[in-house]
Design a protein around this nucleic acid. Structure first.
Length: 836
RNA sequence: GCGGGAGUGGCGGAACGGUAGACGCACGGGACUUAAAAUCCCGAGUCCGCAAGGGCGUGAGGGUUCAAAUCCCUCCUCCCGUACCA
């Protein structure tokens, strides 16, 4: 009997499917386990082995949990709406709908060939009306909750993709999808108020079993910073200028102010003499892309001619505009303290503005301290500092915290204390207050593209913005032949009068539909709630279904979604929680990011596998040559699953040989009934069970395969007189999550009528008694260097062991002529003679 | 700049502070074969040595410890994230 995977792999997949073994049902007897893969977008290029890595991992865990007594939900679907799918369609000149269908059926076939236990009866497709009806419904829910609003503002615009982008979709000033430099464009757009959830999105991370790296990326993205808002008067105007600072303790060092060029006050306060120059600068900055702005090293800016009044000391300081101050953060205006801020320093140097030190350097404070200064006497502090350091050159900004100086009654205070005192004073005069700012900005969700769910909103001249009533959903995406983006900012749907023109749901009068589509990130922000209720017609989900299955117990996918999808899904879940639609605040309890599979591509460098880079390996060919089980096992064996791994064409040979050796063993060994007699086999079996169970839980799947190999090697070496049925069956059960087809086939070979995944035999647990040994290898060291390995009975005491060890030739020669200083004894492990 | 991760044989990688290199790939030798492939067995970090044996070894340099790949400090290289956020 030759190992020929092609002769039986498909058979087992058919059996699993025919018996609906992977169709998870709510079940009160078994505990539930929801194991989810990030659903892929249907690409015409299909799957390469890099995609498989995460899918194999989640499948091994799903199968392990199934055999471990859990009811496992392991679904799969298609993130079919959105730019990736649409761009692929445009490139090929095929309508996205047709292209999506072709791609999903090919990829579904590939996924099935892998033998994953997906519950295909729960498959979802975000581009189907049955699904996007509910995507639109979630949009309406966000609107009802007051979290969706329309705003006409300059947005991130990708000229190549011809659509607006959320901040999260802009990487280093470029479109995350296509790499084109992002520009600004003024368009009325829908936003979701994710910034209102900033603090909760930080706080709730603490309870999640996620990689620290991802948590940190989210925290950094949300960007909390504590400080104060302070109101500066404007000389000659009633208006005032509100700024945000994290360093109120430096306010006595403010020597000028800066407004973002887009700031509302710019036009108003600019003096006639400065008008021309200011307008020129505003026009210049608005014409520049984010990339150009970031690449520029030198600071630029223009004086407005106006002056602000520092509420701390009444000083009259000039107001400038400069593009290093961003309109989107804080109040779009700052007080500049060049002595204690690197950017302000550079600007002040460039434009020759005054620099006034108000925080002592650590060194200065130390010297004054040593001289016995009394920090509680502000005037003395100022005097002493000025005498000691006042005339010295100040060569670089000092941005650390420190003792305040030249700050009136606050001089001598530590920054942290002084900052609070300054804010308290401002609060009492009503010119300032403590404020916490977040970098996270509201989520732009309108897309000027065809391939998405139409935004379910209507504009009526009488009633204004009117949401489409739930009973009129879905707003169907019309099938059109011309779906190319217009590039003007208008969606392709705007060119379809029959789509645009409608009646107002409120007054019945003529009205127009919103012609933008919903960002596909929204489609994927709730799909994990749909699987449990995928058959539900009248609701997006049944409460009892999500209460049973959700949250997801293990979520597997790439790190590239660390801020995008994962942040959005968490936000969406919180909206639903607040609306009482779900009973949990976080969607994914445990997250695992698998590493990339890399290979040398066209560029000559190691790169993430992809067809365009010329380093793609097609799993279909490997399945044909080695069988699915070998490929699954190799993708686990290739390395620690969380790290990147380089594809090696001959690496799969090793796991293929392992599976074939197991095949040859079981199909040829004499099967002994009754308990295992061979003590070495028994010991190895229990040692392996222990190791494999531990490593499965820790997701160390590479060493799970290694342990299975070692175990098999031992069984093969002891097979001459036969092996017990129990040993062989234990092996097959433990092998089955990794290599389910061959495990099933060999299980049947041993005479079982029902397969492993049908009968779900007891998952093996090790028994300590079999690991117990009478003897062990004692490591004997001299000065920490291993000299001998001695086989000794466990019962011996230290003194007896020392005597035995000293007689061993290598130990004896190492000890000769030296005095024994001490002996370290680790029971049942080692003996270390320390000599001098 | 800042933050995070990684550096172990020819290669992928193992290793609760306690036998470094498990498991595999590639390689060498042997068996089988007319021959090759496949398979099976054996070998193998490196240096010296016929061998027995010994020295050196986990990016570099220090430190803690009876004992360090593992803990601490300094530095180097690579990868990832982020970037004028006041």
């Amino acid at each position: 009997m030759q190992y020929d995977p092609a002769s039986f792999e498909q058979k087992w997949r058919d059996i699993w499917e025919a018996k609906h073994l992977h169709h998870a049902q709510r079940d009160d007897k078994r505990p539930k386990y929801y194991c989810l893969d990030m659903f892929p977008y249907p690409s015409g290029e299909g799957l390469h082995v890099g995609h498989w890595r995460g899918y194999v991992l989640s499948d091994v865990i799903s199968r392990y949990m199934t055999l471990h007594g859990y009811q496992v939900l392991h679904p799969m679907g298609w993130d079919a709406f959105g730019l990736p799918a649409e761009n692929a369609a445009i490139k090929k000149g095929i309508h996205p709908e047709i292209q999506t269908q072709a791609a999903t059926s090919n990829m579904r076939r590939q996924l099935k060939d892998m033998g994953s236990m997906y519950d295909w009866e729960r498959e979802v497709n975000s581009s189907s009306p049955e699904y996007y009806k509910w995507t639109q419904w979630t949009f309406l829910k966000a609107y009802e909750a007051g979290l969706a609003y329309k705003k006409d503002a300059p947005i991130n615009w990708c000229p190549s993709c011809a659509t607006g982008l959320a901040d999260e979709e802009v990487k280093e000033g470029c479109c995350e999808r296509c790499g084109t430099a992002v520009t600004k464009k003024g368009l009325p757009q829908w936003f979701f108020a994710i910034s209102k959830y900033a603090q909760r999105l930080i706080d709730d991370l603490s309870g999640l079993e996620w990689p620290e790296k991802v948590k940190k990326m989210q925290i950094d993205w949300i960007g909390r910073s504590e400080g104060a808002e302070v109101r500066f008067g404007i000389d000659g105007f009633d208006d005032s200028l509100l700024i945000f600072t994290t360093r109120p303790d430096t306010i006595y060092g403010a020597s000028y102010m800066v407004l973002a060029p887009e700031h509302d006050l710019v036009a108003k306060i600019t003096t006639p003499q400065q008008k021309e120059e200011v307008e020129k600068y505003v026009a210049y900055t608005s014409s520049r892309t984010e990339v150009q702005r970031q690449e520029q090293k030198e600071k630029t800016g223009v004086f407005t001619g106006a002056y602000a009044l520092n509420p701390a000391n009444g000083e009259r300081i000039p107001i400038w505009i400069a593009d290093y101050v961003l309109m989107g953060y804080g109040t779009g205006a700052i007080m500049a303290v060049p002595a204690h801020d690197e950017r302000d320093w550079e600007f002040a140097k460039a434009f020759n503005l005054p620099i006034k030190q108000v925080i002592m350097t650590a060194e200065q404070a130390q010297k004054l301290e040593a001289a016995g200064i009394d920090w509680s006497q502000p005037q003395e502090v100022d005097k002493a500092w000025s005498e000691a350091f006042g005339s010295l050159p100040y060569e670089a900004p000092y941005c650390e915290l420190g003792r305040m100086v030249n700050s009136q009654e606050f001089s001598g205070m530590e920054s942290a204390v002084g900052a609070k005192a300054v804010v308290a004073k401002f609060e009492s005069y009503r010119v300032g207050r403590a404020v916490t700012n977040y970098r996270l900005r509201d989520w732009l969700v309108s897309r000027q593209r065809y391939w998405g769910a139409p935004i379910p909103m209507v504009y009526c001249d009488q009633c204004g913005i009117v949401p489409v009533p739930e009973n009129q959903l879905p707003v169907l995406l019309p099938h059109v032949d011309s779906y190319q983006p217009s590039g003007t900012g208008a969606s392709p749907l705007a060119a379809l009068p029959e789509f645009v023109n409608t009646t107002c749901p409120r007054c019945g009068g003529p009205a127009r539909r919103d012609t933008d589509t919903i960002s596909q990130w929204i489609c994927s922000s709730w799909y994990f709630l749909r699987y449990p209720s995928s058959d539900c017609q009248d609701k997006p989900w049944r409460r009892e279904d999500v209460d049973y299955w959700n949250p997801v117990d293990l979520y597997v996918g790439g790190i590239e979604h660390a801020v995008l999808h994962l942040l959005y899904s968490r936000f969406y879940t919180k909206i639903f929680y607040d609306l009482g639609l779900v009973g949990f605040k976080e969607p994914f309890t445990r997250l695992f990011n698998q590493g990339m599979i890399t290979k040398v591509g066209h560029s000559g460098r190691l790169e993430k596998m992809s067809k365009s880079k010329g380093n793609s390996v097609n799993p279909d060919d490997l399945v044909h040559k080695y069988g699915t089980d070998a490929l699954r096992a190799y993708l686990l064996f290739i390395g620690p699953p969380e790290l990147d791994a380089e594809w090696n064409d001959s690496g799969i040979e090793g796991v293929y040989r392992w599976i074939r050796r197991v095949w040859n063993l079981i199909t040829s060994v004499k099967v002994l009934e009754g308990p295992e007699e061979n003590s070495e086999v028994l010991k190895m079996t229990h040692k392996s069970i222990k190791k494999i169970n531990e490593d499965l839980t820790r997701l160390h799947l590479n060493t799970v395969v290694a342990a299975l190999m070692e175990w098999a090697n031992l069984l093969i070496s002891k097979a001459e007189k036969g092996l017990s049925r129990e040993t062989l069956e234990t092996y097959l059960i433990m092998m089955s999550p990794v290599a389910p087809h061959v495990a099933e086939e060999l299980w049947a070979f041993l005479g079982h009528k029902q397969g492993i995944f049908e009968s779900r035999p007891q998952w093996p647990e090790h028994e300590e008694e079999h690991l117990h040994e009478e003897e062990y290898n004692l490591v004997v060291q001299v000065n920490g260097k291993m000299r001998e390995l001695v086989r000794v009975p466990k019962s011996l005491e230290q003194s007896e062991l020392e005597a035995i060890a000293k007689e061993r030739p290598k130990v004896a020669s190492s000890l000769e002529g030296k005095s024994l200083r001490k002996v370290i004894y680790v029971p049942h492990k080692l003996l270390n003679f320390v000599v001098g």
